[in-house]
Computed example of a mutant assay.
Amino acid sequence: MLRRRPPRSASADDLLTTLGRLTAQAREGAELQQARVELAEALQREMLPATLPEAPGLRTAATYAPARHGLDIGGDWFDGFPLPDGALAFCVGDVEGHDVEAAAFMGQVRIGLRAVAVGVADPGEVLSRANDLLLSVDCGLFATCTFLRFDPETWELSSARAGHVPGIWATTDGRFGLAEDAGGLPLGVLPGESYPVTRRRLTKAGAFVLLTDGVIEGPSFPIEVGLAKAARLVSDRADADPAEVAAGVMSVAEYTGHQDDAAVIVLCYDAAEDRPG
């Protein structure tokens, strides 16, 4: 009876050749992904403002944390800029998705808001016009956003929300809560959408905080729990330096096990009657 010989084992040279080819392919894939990550990070870094505007009696700070894994970067942003009439504008937002496309769309949203706000005073109208502008470019993405307008003459803070998580307010006398104001759909979803405006006169010294859901929500950490924890932290630091407040709020992300990027913007203010000048 004939016996079949077992197949010839691969030689050491064959194994090394195969291993080298697979290693090169893996390195090429890893380098491509790393390049995309670095590009998204560069877009994010260049598009976020280096400083935020302030006014006598108003101090501001912001912080941003990139995502922890892969390409989950590029969607969150914050911004602040002076307006022609002397008011100050602040906004924070979160673009659907991640990667370079989300970072690029984030830049479009930020520029669109700035362009509209120069000629429109009402925050709701700013969001409405920016919404229609973004829909006109037919990108296919959408973004949540909160837009604030601070008037240094009346000491009034007016705000509008486009599908974004609520802000947090706290006063130095120990009161605090969530700014669960009425709002509209995210930007880039439905043309002609309207956005209600909430107005607050800052009669007591305190802090107002805007943030993205990457700060307060994680795989096993409900957003309600994260908001409550962040609100208590803001209350404990309502009379602190805004950078300290921002760092405290961002620390909540360490509890959530967040994988998304995250942004926080803080306004700390004196009482209206105590403001300088």
Rank of each mutant, 00 (worst) to 15 (best):
R68Q: 12
V245C: 09
T60N: 14
E244V: 15
G93V: 06
E180G: 00
V266R: 05
A243Y: 05
A272R: 06
D260M: 05
E180L: 00
Y269W: 13
Q33R: 14
G75C: 09
E125R: 12
D213W: 07
F90K: 10
G206A: 06
A67Q: 08
F208D: 00
R3M: 09
E156Q: 14
Q259P: 00
A67M: 11
L15P: 03
L22E: 10
V215S: 07
S9I: 03
D241C: 10
Q259E: 15
D173E: 10
P186G: 05
A130F: 04
G226K: 09
G107K: 11
T18F: 07
L157P: 06
G183S: 07
A61P: 11
L210M: 14
D274Y: 00
G86Y: 02
D151T: 08
G74D: 02
P166Q: 01
A162C: 05
T60P: 13
R161P: 00
L88G: 05
A130W: 00
R4I: 01
S194C: 06
W169A: 04
D85H: 04
L58H: 10
A67N: 06
R201G: 08
L134Y: 03
C145H: 07
L113G: 02
V95I: 11
H69P: 00
A30Q: 13
P242K: 09
R68A: 09
C91L: 12
S220Y: 04
V249H: 07
A103G: 08
R45N: 11
A26Q: 15
R175W: 08
D72V: 04
T256W: 03
R200K: 05
E46H: 13
L19G: 08
D239Q: 12
R45K: 14
T146L: 10
R8N: 07
P242G: 10
H258R: 13
L71I: 10
F221R: 08
I265K: 01
D270M: 06
P196V: 14
A55S: 14
A253M: 14
S11M: 13
D274H: 12
A104E: 10
A231V: 08
P219S: 07
R4E: 14
L2Y: 03
E38K: 13
P56G: 08
